[in-house]
Every structure is written in C-alpha cells, then in structure tokens.
Amino acid sequence: MTKPFELVASHPVLDFVNTLDWRFRESGSEELLADYSDLLRFAAQANLLTAEQHRRLRRSSTENDPAQVFRRAIELREAMAQVFYALVDGVVPPVAATLKLDQYLHMAQTNRRLRWNKSRFELSWSAGEDSELQLPLWLLAQSASELLIAEAAQRVSACANLECRWLFLDTTKNHTRRWCDMKICGNRMKVRRFKAHRQA
C-alpha cells in the first residue's frame, strides 16, 4: 500500500514544498514525488482536488503523457520554496522565483471560466486534454498567491531541525511552534540534546 504524505503544515502549499524532504541535509535531500500520479495523490490528500477531479485526471493521465506537466510541478514547487524560505529567513525573495510563481498564477487565472450552471453562475476550469492535466498546478499557484498576500504569511515558519526545515503555518496562540511534528523532529532533537548533555 502506498504510504500517505505527512501533511503537517496546516496549508497545502507549504505541504507541497515539504515534498522535497531533508532539503537542507548535508548528505542530500529525498524526493517524495516520483511522477504525475504522486502529484495527483498529494493534491487529493491535501483536498486541492475533489474525488471526481482526481478520478478524471488519473484517467486523462493514462491517455496523455503527463511527464512535462510533472516537470512544471517540480519547477513551481522550487519557486515556491525559494519565496517562502526567503520570507521565513527575513530576506527579499529572489526575483526569478517571484516571476516564476507569477507566471503560474497568470496561467491559472487565464484558465478560469465563468459559466451558468442550472440556476447560478460558477467559476470553473478549462477542460482540454493537455490543459486539464495542469489543474493541480493552477490550484497550487492560486493557493500560494492567496497565502502570500494574507496576514497568515507572517505565520509561516520552518522546523527548528536545520536539516529538515519543513515549512508550516504556526497557528499557536503565541507563535511558539518549533517543530514540523513533535513526534518526528521534536523527539529526535530532544534525544540529540540529551546525548550531548550526558557526554558533556
């Protein structure tokens, strides 16, 4: 059975950035997304896609080659990573990463459609063979832009484990959250401090 993603960030965009695990580890990072099907699995688990959208895109991906869309998803993720880590570190986000994120946001916006559905208007997405496969990218770009301009952007933080640094939205009352997950990095760092104290 496929292992589910660990969604600990309280926001799908930050969880998406975290799909490159151990990003800052000296021995190297670990990629959690192998292909387009993994991207769909993530988007469904993060509630970006409805069950129906997930089924439709899985079917469409078997009829069309999604490799290029997957490469764009990784490109988008790394642009998001540069922007959000810059905010966490208190520096100006790289211009190239900001422009890349804006490019994907523009693609998302140009693929929104206003339509009449039975008794009311609704916003929907373009449905074409190649364009439909990009729906997870549009949803992620839109969600990232909404987070960046919201007050919540000030609550984006990174795990205190310097090899991990998974991003998360600190929703604690006094902004005191330090770890991506207490069961993972919190306990690991506690053990490390205990061993260092005993050896001192």
Rank of each mutant, 00 (worst) to 15 (best):
N111D: 12
A108P: 05
K100Y: 03
S124D: 15
F121P: 01
L140E: 12
D102F: 12
K118E: 11
S119H: 05
L135N: 06
Q109A: 01
E122S: 04
W125E: 04
S119M: 02
Q134A: 14
R120T: 09
L123D: 05
K118N: 09
E146Y: 10
W138K: 10
Q142K: 09
E122K: 03
M107I: 00
T110E: 14
E129H: 01
K118V: 04
L133D: 10
W116E: 04
S131R: 14
R115E: 12
M107R: 10
E122Q: 13
W116F: 09
Q109C: 00
I149T: 12
A127K: 13
A141C: 00
L123Y: 07
D102E: 13
W125D: 06
A108V: 02
A127E: 15
R112H: 07
L147N: 06
L105E: 05
A108R: 09
Q103F: 07
H106M: 11
L133A: 15
L133N: 12
S145M: 11
L133G: 08
R112P: 07
M107E: 11
W138Y: 15
L140W: 13
S145F: 14
G128W: 01
R112C: 13
Q109Y: 05
F121A: 02
D102A: 12
D102L: 11
W116M: 05
M107T: 05
L148A: 14
S143I: 07
A108C: 05
A141G: 03
A144D: 14
K100P: 04
W125L: 04
Q109P: 00
A127W: 13
S145I: 06
E122D: 04
W138T: 13
L147G: 08
K118M: 09
W125K: 06
K118I: 02
S143T: 14
Q134F: 03
K118C: 02
D130M: 01
Q103H: 15
L123E: 03
G128H: 06
A108E: 04
S143C: 06
A127H: 15
L137I: 15
Q142M: 11
H106W: 08
R113M: 03
L140R: 08
A108Q: 11
E132K: 07
E146A: 07
Q142I: 10
R113E: 06
L114V: 11
N111V: 02
L148C: 05
G128T: 09
